[in-house]
């Protein structure tokens, strides 16, 4: 058996794949957080709950309307995105004038409410969501066995991340967004509907979280609490990356996911906390984060 650093190579690559998958979710979620924070200056604590909502909406669509995975991959983010936009318009938008901490507290309450409601309705236990038949099974790469669905998750989340980056950096809408991030008042004076832009951005961020949730549904069980522990790790990812850059959020997400996976191989006891330890070290050496601009 081939060994690498005294570890069987299959185990090594297996954990690397798990790390890559976790990294995909970290990247997608921290990307959404960074997009929302960039414009709204709100840390969306409900991001984990919106991720959970995405998975649940996909499950419920399947159970009640027979809508399959592929359609759910589009419909669920749209539903969650619209819900997010409504919440932004009716409630969150009232808090922009205040200290940013109120936005954090509001979305924290929102997260508790959503998670509590789903826990009340569906119980704390997870429910399975089966892998779509086209992506079922696995393939032998010669050096390891790759479940096709997991490979798909890595590829599609990378596409979604790059797509979002292109949307923000290369399109007209993205340029409005970046301009409004720099100086919202000036952009509004030029005739851009900034409040609408804010609503769209929050909805988009929520949709991105829901998209990650649908992707996660066949891998993890669909449960009301699937998002709450994840969001704390994603916060650490965001602190490490610094929220200044979109690309920074993506790279940090993958990097920390892989680091976490590798820690599982070499020192399993520390795998739960390795990201937090890295966060503390980064803060001591470079308080603004790896890609951050503000000190």
């Amino acid at each position: 058996m081939t060994m690498i650093f005294g570890i069987p190579i299959q185990a090594f690559l297996g954990q690397l794949l798990i790390g890559l998958i976790n990294g995909s979710f970290y990247a997608l979620l921290s990307l959404g957080l960074a997009v929302i924070f960039g414009l709204l200056r709100v840390i969306n604590f409900a991001h984990g709950a919106q991720y959970m909502l995405g998975a649940f909406v996909a499950l419920l669509l399947l159970q009640y309307f027979g809508i399959n995975y592929w359609l759910a991959l589009i419909v669920a983010p749209v539903i969650v995105g619209v819900l997010g936009a409504i919440i932004e318009r009716t409630m969150l938008s009232r808090l922009y004038k205040l200290d940013h901490l109120y936005g954090l507290l509001f979305t924290f309450g929102l997260a508790l409410t959503i998670e509590g409601t789903f826990r009340y309705l569906y119980g704390a236990a997870g429910q399975p969501y089966s892998v779509p038949s086209a992506l079922a099974g696995g393939t032998n790469l010669g050096f390891m066995f790759l479940p096709i669905y997991r490979g798909w998750v890595v590829v599609i989340s990378l596409i979604a991340c790059i797509g979002t980056w292109l949307l923000i950096e290369k399109t007209k809408l993205g340029s409005y967004l970046r301009a409004a991030t720099e100086n919202a008042v000036l952009v509004q004076a030029f005739g851009v509907n900034v409040p609408l832009l804010l609503t769209f951005t929050y909805g988009f961020g929520a949709a991105l979280a829901a998209f990650a949730g649908v992707l996660a549904a066949p891998i993890y069980q669909v449960s009301p609490l699937m998002g709450s522990n994840l969001i704390i790790v994603v916060f650490a990812v965001v602190v490490v990356g610094g929220m200044g850059s979109i690309m920074g959020a993506i790279i940090t997400g993958y990097m920390l996911g892989i680091t976490e996976g590798l820690t599982k191989v070499f020192y399993p006891e520390a795998s739960n906390i390795v990201i937090f330890v890295i966060m503390a070290i980064v803060l001591l050496i470079r308080p603004a984060g790896l890609f951050g601009r503000d000190a």
Partner: peptide, 28 residues
């Protein structure tokens, strides 16, 4: 010592993350 390096929202997120780390420590 770690958390006061950042302000506002970051401070909140850092304390949350470090606290989660302590949670995992207590778990193990």
């Amino acid at each position: 010592f770690v958390a006061i390096r950042r302000q506002g929202i970051y401070f909140a997120m850092i304390t949350l993350a470090l606290s989660q780390m302590f949670f995992f420590f207590c778990l193990q």
